[in-house]
Simulated scan of single mutants.
Amino acid sequence: MTSSAASASASDERPGTRLRVDAERNRDRILAAARRLYAREGLGVSMASVAREAGVGKATLSRRFATREELINAVFADRMDAYASAVTVALDDPDPWHGFTGYLYAICAMQAADRGFADVLTMTFPAAKALEARRARAYNDVLELIARAKATGHLRADFTDRDVPVLLMANAGVVSAAGDAAPDTWRRLVGHMIRSYAAPGAPVPPLPEAPEPSALYRAMVRLGRSD
């Protein structure tokens, strides 16, 4: 191929390459913007707000993610993988009761670190099939973890798998209510809940410190202002 022909060929490819690069850059900007907004404000953020945060038009957002569920699936895929990994780690613990209590702290910590993920763990998204497939795989492992913890005699016999989403719902509420004013309040909740799940005589982790009165007051003031 002559140099002029090669130059012409490269010139023909550049517009298409630029379009692909621009499309990928826009996708990355949208995902980064959605992560920031979801982590800060939860899943109630509108698609229009995500577009503004990303600095793209609504049409561009729609081309990359046609629905809210598609965006949520892309944003939280890695976090749902981490959620599934947490129960795998717990199952690998030679002490199933210790693995169980460590798992509860781990998943509640994930909620505390990201308000959007706190919402994801307490909702279902039938259209986000990949996300729900990850959740289903984790659920089966949670059933095994509960059975092993009960076999030690340390987990109450009347504890069921439904108590896990109940805990996550309660923790999501605490994370949202406490906000930045009392960010470690969730630890106290989980500590108390583990005590309620423990059979008589079971070893329980030390109860985390209660939040400072001034921190709780600030959280309550913030809640009052948001109404």
Rank of each mutant, 00 (worst) to 15 (best):
R25S: 10
R27H: 09
D28W: 08
D28A: 14
D28S: 11
R29M: 12
R29D: 13
I30V: 13
A34C: 12
R36V: 03
L37Q: 07
E41M: 07
G42T: 03
L43S: 10
G44D: 02
S46F: 07
M47E: 04
A48R: 15
S49W: 01
S49F: 01
A51Q: 11
A51E: 09
R52Q: 10
G55T: 08
G57Y: 13
T60D: 08
S62P: 03
R64I: 08
F65N: 03
F65S: 04
E69P: 12
L71C: 05
N73K: 07
N73F: 00
A74V: 01
R79A: 13
R79Y: 03
M80S: 14
D81W: 00
Y83R: 05
Y83E: 02
S85D: 15
S85A: 15
A86M: 00
T88P: 02
T88K: 05
V89D: 14
L91E: 08
D92A: 15
D92M: 03
D92F: 04
D93H: 13
P94Y: 12
P94N: 13
D95C: 02
W97V: 00
W97Y: 12
G99K: 05
G99P: 12
T101E: 08
Y105R: 15
I107P: 05
I107Y: 10
M110H: 12
Q111C: 14
A112R: 04
A113S: 13
F117T: 08
F117K: 04
V120R: 04
V120A: 12
L121D: 04
L121H: 05
T124M: 06
A130G: 15
L131G: 10
R134L: 11
R134P: 03
R134M: 08
R135C: 06
R135Y: 06
